[in-house]
Design a protein around this nucleic acid. Structure first.
Lengths: 134, 134
DNA sequence: AATCTGATCTAGAACAATTCTAAAATGGAC
DNA sequence: GTCCATTTTAGAATTGTTCTAGATCAGATT
């Protein structure tokens, strides 16, 4: 429901403005996705909303900072905002650009590197790079 | 020695031209590094060579394709060309941007994801993201 | 050494992703 | 409604990288 989404934004500390709500409805539709800013803009335009690209970036980045979205960037391509919030990893197809999720349980990273004093581990990202050709 | 470097390029299938040799001498000086195109250009300029930035990119990319360099890009920043060729992983400090190596033995990735038919695993990249603040 | 030919290098334009800026619109509290 | 802080906007600016078309180079051949 609409109010669910609103509630979700509010409880994440995000003011539920028009664009944020519209974007949130598109993004949090229940399907896990990896969406770029341009794709998000296109989806909004399909609903006859015409926010500026800057707003889309602002909003997606904001959602990310507030913990509502992950963000994955590979090899200098566009940032992809990730609606799956549980820790997980990715398979990246270098030939097609396709990015898919793998649950964190199917992969175990064993061993913690010696880290500089005073630093804190924030996350461990694992990317399996595959090729579809050959 | 100079001829060592030349030999190295040739045996990797790279024609040893002036710029390539100069870059190779800077890059393969025995210290492992993560160098950006701009840093490489600056290093060349310090030796009174003035190649175009495009040539530096061409050369670094070429070295990468020929297996002489790795390439790491994080969060949409500049590509960093990695002189360590053995499989290994990275620690990325989100506050300072610093990138350091971890040997592949200190980390074990256990479990292979179910991969699409016909695809081939090329590499497994692990990034430990840390913060120095707080 | 002069010549040839394909590979390389150049300067600058072009491109793509993202952020910045300054001004206009909006939202919620009064 | 009025206010003030927060958002949003359009477009410029920035950054990183690649493309283009022409100039130059490296190595083989005369």
């Amino acid at each position: 429901m609409v109010s669910d989404i609103k509630e979700r934004l509010v409880s994440a500390g995000v003011q539920p403005t028009r664009i944020r709500l519209a974007l949130a409805r598109i993004i949090f539709d229940g399907e896990h996705k990896h969406i770029t800013a341009h794709e998000a803009l296109a989806a909004l335009q399909k609903r006859n909303l015409r926010p500026s690209l800057a707003s889309v970036y602002n909003t997606l980045n904001h959602f990310h900072e507030m913990g509502l979205l992950g963000r994955v960037t590979i090899d200098g391509g566009s940032a992809r905002f990730d609606t799956r919030l549980e820790p997980h990893h990715h398979i990246y197809n270098e030939d097609t650009g396709e990015l898919t999720d793998i649950s964190a349980d199917s992969v175990t990273v064993k061993g913690r590197p010696r880290m500089p004093r005073g630093s804190k581990l924030k996350s461990v990202d694992v990317i399996f790079r595959i090729g579809s050709k050959g």
